[in-house]
Deep mutational scan, measured.
Amino acid sequence: AVSDRLIGRKGVVMEAISPQNSALVKVDGETWRATSGTVLDVGEEVSVKAIEGVKLVVEKLE
């Protein structure tokens, strides 16, 4: 799938994300809905860990 190429890519949080709420991230110039197990604020850099349906699963870039 096209989205599989995004695993391992870096992105930027466009809307705050919490474990209860998905929000938008920008990866390679494209906007995607994403979820995370932690709270992520706007502007934080993230890494794509997986794809669940049409959502990216991201975590904060260390």
Rank of each mutant, 00 (worst) to 15 (best):
A1L: 12
A1T: 10
A1V: 11
A1E: 11
A1M: 12
A1W: 12
A1H: 12
V2E: 10
V2D: 10
V2M: 12
V2Q: 10
V2H: 10
V2F: 11
S3D: 09
S3P: 13
S3K: 10
D4W: 08
D4L: 10
D4E: 11
D4M: 09
D4C: 14
R5G: 08
R5P: 06
R5W: 10
R5M: 07
R5E: 08
L6D: 04
L6F: 06
I7N: 04
I7Y: 03
G8E: 03
G8Y: 02
G8F: 00
G8K: 03
G8S: 02
G8Q: 01
R9T: 07
R9D: 06
R9C: 13
R9F: 08
R9Q: 11
R9G: 06
K10V: 13
K10L: 11
K10C: 14
K10W: 11
G11L: 00
G11Y: 00
G11A: 06
G11C: 08
G11V: 02
G11H: 00
V12M: 06
V12T: 08
V12Q: 06
V12Y: 08
V12P: 02
V13A: 04
V13C: 06
V13N: 00
V13Y: 02
V13K: 00
V13P: 00
V13L: 08
M14K: 04
M14W: 06
M14D: 03
M14Y: 05
E15N: 06
E15Y: 07
E15M: 10
A16H: 08
A16D: 04
A16E: 06
A16S: 10
A16I: 15
I17T: 15
I17R: 12
I17N: 14
I17W: 14
I17D: 13
I17E: 15
I17M: 14
I17G: 15
I17H: 13
I17V: 11
S18I: 06
S18C: 10
S18K: 08
P19Q: 10
P19H: 11
P19V: 09
P19N: 11
P19M: 10
Q20P: 14
Q20W: 13
Q20I: 09
Q20G: 15
Q20K: 10
Q20M: 11
N21Q: 11
N21M: 10
N21T: 10
N21D: 10
N21S: 11
N21G: 14
N21F: 10
S22F: 13
S22D: 15
S22H: 12
S22P: 09
A23Q: 06
A23T: 07
L24N: 05
L24D: 04
L24F: 09
L24Y: 09
L24C: 09
L24E: 04
V25D: 01
K26H: 08
K26D: 07
K26R: 12
V27L: 06
V27K: 00
V27D: 01
V27W: 01
V27A: 00
D28A: 07
D28P: 00
G29Q: 05
G29C: 08
E30K: 11
E30D: 07
E30L: 09
E30N: 07
T31N: 08
T31V: 14
T31W: 12
T31F: 14
W32Y: 15
W32N: 02
W32S: 02
W32L: 05
W32F: 14
W32T: 02
W32C: 03
W32M: 04
R33H: 13
R33C: 15
R33K: 10
R33E: 15
R33G: 09
R33A: 13
R33V: 14
A34R: 00
A34G: 04
A34N: 03
A34E: 03
A34I: 04
A34M: 02
A34S: 04
T35I: 14
T35K: 07
T35R: 05
T35D: 06
T35Y: 09
S36L: 05
S36R: 00
S36Y: 05
S36Q: 01
S36C: 13
S36V: 04
S36N: 04
G37T: 14
G37K: 13
G37L: 13
T38M: 11
T38K: 07
T38A: 10
T38Y: 10
T38D: 14
T38V: 11
V39K: 13
V39N: 12
L40S: 02
L40H: 03
L40Y: 03
L40G: 00
L40P: 02
L40K: 00
L40I: 09
D41P: 06
D41Y: 15
D41L: 14
V42E: 06
V42L: 06
V42A: 07
G43R: 03
G43F: 03
G43L: 04
G43Y: 04
G43A: 03
E44A: 09
E44P: 01
E45T: 11
E45H: 11
E45V: 13
E45F: 13
E45P: 07
E45N: 07
V46L: 01
V46Q: 02
V46M: 01
V46C: 03
V46S: 02
V46K: 02
V46P: 01
V46F: 06
S47Q: 14
S47D: 05
S47C: 15
V48H: 01
V48F: 00
V48Y: 00
V48G: 01
V48L: 02
V48E: 01
V48R: 00
K49F: 07
K49R: 09
K49L: 13
K49T: 13
A50V: 03
A50C: 08
A50K: 07
I51D: 03
I51G: 00
I51W: 06
I51T: 05
E52H: 10
E52F: 09
E52T: 07
E52V: 11
E52G: 03
E52Q: 11
G53I: 02
G53E: 04
G53V: 02
G53Y: 03
G53C: 04
G53W: 03
V54T: 14
V54N: 15
V54L: 14
V54E: 15
V54C: 15
K55H: 15
K55I: 15
K55N: 14
L56W: 00
L56F: 03
L56R: 00
L56H: 03
L56E: 03
V57A: 03
V57K: 05
V57E: 04
V57L: 08
V57R: 07
V57C: 06
V57I: 11
V58W: 00
V58P: 02
V58E: 01
V58F: 01
V58L: 04
E59F: 04
E59I: 09
E59Q: 08
E59H: 06
E59Y: 05
K60Q: 05
K60I: 06
K60P: 09
L61Q: 06
L61K: 05
L61T: 08
L61F: 09
L61Y: 10
E62D: 12
E62V: 12
E62A: 12
E62H: 12
